[in-house]
Simulated assay, not measured.
Amino acid sequence: MITTKITIENYLAEYLIGKYGTPDSKVVRLPSDLDLYHFVYDLLQKRPAGCPVDSGNLELVLPERREAHLPGGKPLATYNYIGERGAKILSRKINTMMRAELHDLFDENKHVYGIDYINSAWYFLRKYCIESLSVEALLKDYQRWRRKMRRKTSVREYKHR
């Protein structure tokens, strides 16, 4: 098992650790059927010469793929580094994944079960042990997204007689 560490926003690291981490350690092992698993594999590159030891708030188990043993594949002994640019790209992907799950949870709880948004936000934070975000931040993000996605159609102006 080869791991690497990257630095991303704290709430995204907490989300991934809460969703895919193991209870006894903070190491994240992504399932092989997840798009993020393949995304991480594509971002792997050779460690630059003189690069310091990995540091960061998220430790990922690197994906081992069958193609690594074929000619042209990436052996993890050599390709075991995610650079700063790769960490930013991965951070955006994780952020999109987290927000999609959050918005889906809010909609389902409100319209199917009748649960308030604030209770859904508390549930989401407790489920993934996220301490870096507040309930108000999640609610504000959802309201912005809902306003942007569900714009009302413009209504024709009526002239008064």
Rank of each mutant, 00 (worst) to 15 (best):
S32A: 13
L34R: 13
L34F: 15
D35Y: 12
D35V: 03
D35I: 06
L36R: 05
Y37G: 01
Y37P: 02
Y37W: 11
Y37E: 03
H38L: 13
F39I: 10
Y41Q: 00
Y41H: 01
Y41I: 00
L43A: 13
L43E: 10
L43H: 05
L43K: 09
L44S: 05
Q45Y: 07
K46Y: 01
P48S: 07
P48R: 08
G50K: 05
G50M: 07
C51E: 14
C51V: 12
P52I: 03
P52R: 12
P52C: 10
V53C: 06
D54L: 01
D54I: 09
D54M: 08
S55W: 12
G56D: 09
L58A: 04
L58W: 08
E59N: 15
E59L: 14
E59W: 13
L60M: 05
V61W: 01
V61Y: 04
P63Q: 10
P63V: 07
E64Q: 15
E64R: 14
R65W: 02
R65P: 00
R66C: 08
A68V: 04
A68F: 03
A68M: 15
A68I: 04
A68C: 14
A68R: 04
L70F: 05
L70D: 12
P71D: 01
P71H: 02
G72Y: 10
G72N: 12
G72C: 11
G73P: 06
G73K: 10
K74I: 06
K74T: 08
P75T: 05
P75Q: 06
L76E: 08
L76I: 13
L76K: 06
T78R: 05
Y79S: 03
N80Q: 10
N80H: 14
Y81K: 04
Y81T: 01
I82S: 13
I82Y: 10
I82L: 14
G83S: 04
E84Y: 07
E84S: 05
E84T: 02
G86S: 11
A87K: 04
K88V: 12
K88A: 09
K88E: 06
I89R: 03
I89F: 09
L90E: 02
L90W: 00
S91Y: 00
S91C: 05
K93G: 11
K93H: 15
I94E: 08
N95I: 04
N95H: 09
N95L: 10
N95E: 13
N95S: 11
T96M: 14
T96R: 14
M97G: 13
M97E: 12
M98G: 02
E101S: 10
L102H: 02
H103S: 06
D104K: 03
D104I: 01
D104G: 02
D104C: 06
L105D: 15
L105N: 12
L105I: 10
L105V: 11
L105Q: 11
L105R: 07
F106D: 06
F106K: 03
F106E: 02
F106G: 08
N109L: 08
H111V: 07
H111Y: 15
V112P: 00
V112Q: 09
V112G: 00
Y113T: 03
